[in-house]
Design a protein around this nucleic acid. Structure first.
Length: 207
DNA sequence: CCCTGATTCGC
DNA sequence: GCGAATCAGG
């Protein structure tokens, strides 16, 4: 893949928006995060530093030795450009977020009741026995797990973090489980067990 | 372990 | 210029 103007533009935009290199790479496709980082540096926008001037004067250059013999320098140089006041006048606050993009569909709903039924895309999602019953063990497991949840926010979710919502989205008391997902699934083991009904949760079903 | 960006260096 | 490999954190 080549860095077409369009791709570079996307890169710049996303980087400016604070997206990580891996996110950008995923979005662009055909490149790795390393490629993105490399490009970012080449473009000179490694940091989102304002074009402001640094008080530090770049006077740290290696001694230009004319006839340097066969000396293997193992990069022991330690530049320390840290004497910057870093004013940081205004607090940047961006809540902009209306890009559907590749967000995984996350189930949601007020949660006061221990029983929820997240929707799963592309899942058969068979007829739900009105009063579906989840094994008490599974529920207990979920409750236990929710105490040890990593409490990730939306931005912290990745493909391998449990996306089960916990709490009320309308309050600050809301987060996502965040525990390691079960291979392939969008949830951790505990949540998978309540999200995916074996469709025969009814053991004493007599007809 | 998962992730992040930074740097190096052969291509 | 490019990006994999590597480094250095969190």
């Amino acid at each position: 893949m080549a860095w077409t103007d369009e791709r570079v533009e996307t890169l710049k935009r996303m980087w400016g928006e604070g997206a990580s290199a891996s996110q950008i790479a995923k979005e662009l496709g055909g490149v790795t995060r390393n490629a993105v980082i490399g490009k970012v540096h080449r473009l000179g926008l490694s940091n989102r530093q304002a074009k402001g001037e640094e008080t530090a004067a770049p006077a740290t250059e290696e001694a230009p030795k004319p006839a340097a013999p066969v000396v293997e320098e193992k990069a022991a140089a330690k530049p320390e450009p840290k004497p910057e006041p870093a004013p940081e006048p205004e607090v940047e606050e961006e809540e902009d977020d209306d890009e559907p993009r590749t967000m995984a569909a996350v189930p949601h709903g007020t949660n006061v009741t221990p029983i929820r039924k997240p929707l799963l895309a592309g899942q058969p999602l068979p007829p739900q026995p009105s009063a579906n019953e989840i094994s008490p063990e599974a529920l207990a497991k979920v409750n236990a797990v929710e105490k040890t949840a990593k409490k990730l926010n939306l931005m912290e979710l990745t493909e391998r973090t449990c996306k089960w919502p916990i709490g009320d989205p309308a309050t600050t008391k809301f987060w996502f489980c965040g525990l390691p997902v079960q291979a392939g699934k969008p949830y951790c083991e505990a949540h998978v067990s309540v999200a995916f009904q074996p469709m025969s949760s009814r053991r004493d079903r007599r007809r």
